[in-house]
Amino acid sequence: MRPLYQFSGQDSFLHHLDPRTKLIFVVSYLLISFLVPQPWILFFLLILAIWALAGISPAEYYPFILLMLPIMAAIALVHIFLIEGAPYLWSTQLGPVQVGASWPGLRVGLDLGFRLGTMGLAFTLFAMTTEPFQWGMAMYRWKLPYKVAFMFAFAIRLYPLIQEEFLVIQRALRARGSGALSSFNPLVFFPGVVTAAVPLGLSAIRRSQDIALAMELRGLNLPEETGRPRVLFREVKLRPIDLLIMAGCLAALGALLGLRLFTHVLG
């Protein structure tokens, strides 16, 4: 299994889209999920879209879904009890207090949970189908300084390596008789994270020093030194399909916003 949020490297329609297009799609999709009454449809639609248009099956990111499910369930559960209103699924009198699980609360909770899940999934779609350097260079094209754009992309490239290191450290902790990082008890888990932070942090510092040196030796600062401008070998530019999708997303978002305003005014 790949580490979460790692670029999948496949060759698909979604992989070929410009990062800026995907960014606008993701933002629009998230906003739309707050405008429509059934966000769960968008959640499952996104899973289907990732599968059909990027060739990435849910089996490749199921740990993310497993991670999201309890959070979504917790949000729903909290709202069941927080929001009052008939009909009640269950209720009881605890002394002077009436405690009840309301149907409207469940609906609001589930909607919020699915919206959160959709946000996470949308980011998964973006990360798994977007090569970080393409993203970085797209930002460079939008006038972000080269070094900032490059370092930003590099940080994303480094993330899966740190995730892998974390797994090794988790095993190393188990080898020393500590199952802290596998524990569901926060009082055990968080001290385990602090313990794991020592090797993880030191390794990250060492790695970043080595990488910074390698970058220097490969000429990161040569353009400033010589005055010869840097040339980008790979062209990053928007194609007609990118423009079409961007326009479609913005139009859909605008239409839904308009509809919401219109119904609000009428209501």
Binding site: R157, P223, P229
Partner: peptide, 16 residues
């Protein structure tokens, strides 16, 4: 870099 071609080209990009 993430892609091999980008990695190999990077030093030449920096040399303009």
């Amino acid at each position: 870099n993430l892609i091999v071609a980008d990695e190999v080209a990077w030093g030449m990009e920096n040399r303009g």
